[in-house]
Every structure is written in C-alpha cells, then in structure tokens.
Design a protein around this nucleic acid. Structure first.
Lengths: 138, 138
DNA sequence: CCGCATTTGTACGTATGTATG
DNA sequence: TCATACATACGTACAAATGCG
C-alpha cells in the first residue's frame, strides 16, 4: 500500500484512509501511538502539511488524539455511563464550542449530547462517555 | 477590536473568537458570507494560514460552511424533524467518518445521532436535522 | 536543575490545481 | 475567457511542551 501523489484523491486523504485501515486492521490498536509526523512524512515521501492534515482529519472524527510534545494516539473506547431519560425529554447533539470543549475537557471530534428534561432544564454530556436510555418498563 | 500577534493566544484562535463575536452580535448573521481569506488576511494583517486555521476551527464546530470557489457562510439553523423514541431505545452520538459524512451529505462539524431501537436495529440521523423525543404520554 | 532530543504548534512563504460565476 | 476564491502541497523557521539523562 502506498500513496499516489498523482491521484485525484488528495495525498492527505489517502494517508488518512491508510491510517484508518491500519487502525481497523489492528496494526495500530486502540491506545497505541501513531507514528510521528516526521516519520510519516519520510516513510510515505510526502510533506509535513499533508501528514498534519491527515491526522487533523482523524482528530476531527474522534479517531485519534494529539498532545504537543508527545504525539498522537489512537483513542480508546471509554466506559459509558448509562443515563435514564425521563418522559418528556428532548435529545439533540452538536459540536461544542472551543470554550465548552475546554471546560468539559473534551477531546477534539467529540460531540455533546444535549438533553432537555420535562422541566425545561438542559443537561450536556460528553458523547464519548454516555449512552442515553429510554427504559423499557422499570 | 484587533489581533495581537504577541499574545500568548495564537493568532488564529483570536481570529476565530473575533468571528464568533461578529456572528453572535449579528454583524455576520446566519446565512451571510464570511469575508474571503485574502480579505481577512489583509484586514487583520495576518498570514493566510492563520485565516484558514481560524475558519477551519469554526467549520469543525459547525458554525460555518465552506465551498470551494465561493467562500464561507455562517450556517443557518435547519428545521428539525422530531423523532419519537420507542421504549428500550438507546441513544448515543459521534462524529461520522469521512465516508459516512459524504454518504449522508453532512456538513463538517455535524455529528450523527445513533438510535438503537428495542429490536436492536440501529438508525443514524444527522444531528443538525433532528430532535429525539421521549413522548410524555401520547 | 539543566541541557538535549523529540514532537507538535504556529506562522510565514511559494506554487499550482480546481470550482464558481 | 477571465477573475476570484478555496484546496492542496511543498518549503522554511521558530516556539512550546514533553521526557530523559
């Protein structure tokens, strides 16, 4: 598998797909480190811009997480709290603003679930940590 | 209001906040065009990279949408279909993969709502077009 | 505590490709 | 055909965070 710089598909999209494949195949399992930008740049013979855009794509999808001075990692599935919905609730989702993302300590690419209760009160939840549940009968 | 290149806050973050303010204040209402990259670059005396990164931030938040050859626009609130949840449903949200985003024709920065019904069947919804509802009694 | 290597972040430049009107 | 605008992709340089010896 290699990258074709003359393809109609942008180099960075090709690299992103290549990394997705490596992640799904188990070559880069959850929790493992993604090769550094310079390494990917050298290995695939592409510029650092293309590498950064590829990783940026995966970050926006919530697939990887990046820390300055350290590198990027494949994000792991977090244990999810199950939250019971109350009758009359309305549920929606959106991306948090930068401020909200910082306040809630969310990784990039993680939406927020918004629950408006029957009393009109609004609760926000990190979408990677909860599952909302409409209980069957109990 | 201006941009301080010597601030500890990156130029592109400053510009993003500045544009957010202009949007919230009504200076750039929903549906209106964001000034072009070159214009913002000139107006604020910053590089095109910084402008692009600022707009990229807002795009990832679902605040603006960009079309090649046209420019960027402030996204408008779409009419939302109200979808009734069935007892036993579980609801979560995440960002779509590139493929899913293309298939569902989603703008950047729009999560998907995932509903697993009591029968185990999974439905995906564009988060900017639906509200899930746990009906009170009807 | 200090210095060093590694890695990502920021920011500039240039050039060319592609979509739109 | 042409101008405009964004997209891609290469380069450079320096800043900032981290980990380690």
């Amino acid at each position: 598998m290699a990258i074709n710089p003359r393809s109609h598909t942008p180099v960075y999209v090709q690299l992103a797909q290549l990394l997705r494949d490596r992640i799904e195949s188990g070559d880069l399992p959850a929790g493992s480190a993604v090769p550094s930008e310079s390494r990917l740049s050298q290995e695939y013979g592409i510029g650092r811009d293309a590498v950064r855009m590829a990783i940026s794509l995966l970050r926006a999808e919530g697939v990887v997480s990046t820390s300055r001075g350290l590198g990027s990692w494949v994000r792991e599935d977090l244990p999810r709290e199950q939250i019971k919905l109350l009758p009359g609730s309305k549920v929606s989702a959106r991306m948090p603003s930068s401020r909200e993302r910082h306040q809630m300590d969310l990784d990039e690419g993680v939406p927020v679930l918004i629950v408006e209760g029957p009393d009109g009160k609004v609760q926000m939840h990190a979408a990677d940590r909860v599952v909302l549940h409409y209980p069957e009968s109990d």
